[in-house]
Write a protein that binds this DNA or RNA. Structure first.
Lengths: 208, 208
DNA sequence: CCATGAAGCGGAGACTGCCTCCTTCTTACT
DNA sequence: AGTAAGAAGGAGGCAGTCTCCGCTTCATGG
């Protein structure tokens, strides 16, 4: 990001100022009203025309991506911290999933665009998503190697599950249920471990 | 639904005809384009004005609820069948969850309104949802009684999880992953059952 | 310090979707 | 056939998204 080469004219200062201001306002707005609030309303609150908003961020996803970037870095830092400080691979995976969960819950409604980003690949959010899937895979692989995680499970599935859990949470909050119910369901499943019953050998076939 | 009492005027036949026709068209439309397709487009395809559509079904949810009713009955029948034929409570719960999953996947995008129905209670879908939560609870309780299911888990959580899984599946399909990945994750969790390792007694503190 | 033109700004407005009146037409009943 | 309940239809209000284009502002060269 230095001053570009050769005779390029310097970027106008008002542009940068606007961009920053829009980001501040959008952060506030999305926090208050969730990510589906009106784009024009954001522009208005920022005191700019819709055209300006769209020139800076050509879509809601682009705005979101820019907004998330700061948090991306936090999450990345968290990853490094976990990898350095937590030696037990099971605990590491757990903590990473927890961090992911927090990231995904930054704004109300965030799981939806993240999910489409994960498939469509065209969203500005896609790259970030993909990166975190990979990280999840790393933690998962370590846990699997140590026999702490089911070897069938794959990183992408875990990431999707985290997304899905966060998505569902919107509903869970109204309930008296602890918000952790779904997280722990994802961790241990609903099925009780097959106890060695008196009648031996009914080892269930969970995965045909 | 007999001819109403006393001097009530008979319902106009064109009304009933329209209603039926709208339902047929909507079924087709939602199947093709998912439940977020334009209401006006449905009206147009059915050859009626938007006013007519909205008089019959005052909201998208109402239309959806009417559409789902036929399938509700199928699902209810399935419930009865399972309860009669499947004696193993674990298998019964599994099969019920499978049936639920199919129901929830009837149209693309269905999980979303179902989730809000589960919390807001004001949606026409709410009643149906609540009923299925209760049924899930029944199956779950039986499985728990037999030691086949984790006693911590609650019916509502399982229902929500099914919803969340279906929601996430939209993404999973693009992947090479079997669509069952998330279902089995919900069943068994990601965590490997604590094996008795050579170094005993390192029972980790997973939940601070 | 002013002239200049490229870059950026703003908002009118095209378009689409939701939903509501209000007028016109259809139907059941007498 | 005549009548009125009530159903149908669609114009149109409202709210969003996003684009285009004339106007303004800023960095630069004289």
């Amino acid at each position: 990001m230095g001053e570009a080469a050769s005779g390029e004219r310097r970027q106008r200062t008002d542009k940068q100022r606007n961009r920053t201001h829009i980001l501040e306002v959008a952060e506030e707005f999305f926090t208050e009203r969730g990510i589906t609030g009106s784009m024009d309303a954001i522009a208005k609150r920022a005191g700019v025309g819709p055209g300006t908003l769209y020139r800076h961020f050509p879509s809601r996803e682009a705005l979101l991506a820019a907004l998330l970037q700061a948090r991306d870095e936090e999450l990345e830092a968290r990853r490094v911290a976990i990898q350095r400080e937590v030696t037990d691979s099971r605990a590491a995976l757990t903590q990473w999933l927890q961090a992911l969960d927090q990231w995904v819950t930054a704004f109300d409604g965030l799981p939806e665009p993240l999910r489409v980003a994960l498939t469509e690949g065209t969203s500005p959010l896609a790259l970030t998503c993909q990166g975190f899937v990979t990280t999840t895979e790393d933690f998962l692989r370590a846990a699997q190697r140590d026999g702490h995680a089911n070897p069938q499970v794959r990183g992408r599935d875990l990431f999707l599950s985290t997304l899905a859990t966060a998505w569902a949470r919107g509903a869970a909050l109204a309930d008296e249920s602890s918000p952790d119910a779904l997280v722990s369901l994802m961790r241990t499943g609903w099925e009780a471990p097959a106890r060695r019953t008196t009648s031996a050998g009914d080892e269930g076939p969970p995965a045909p």
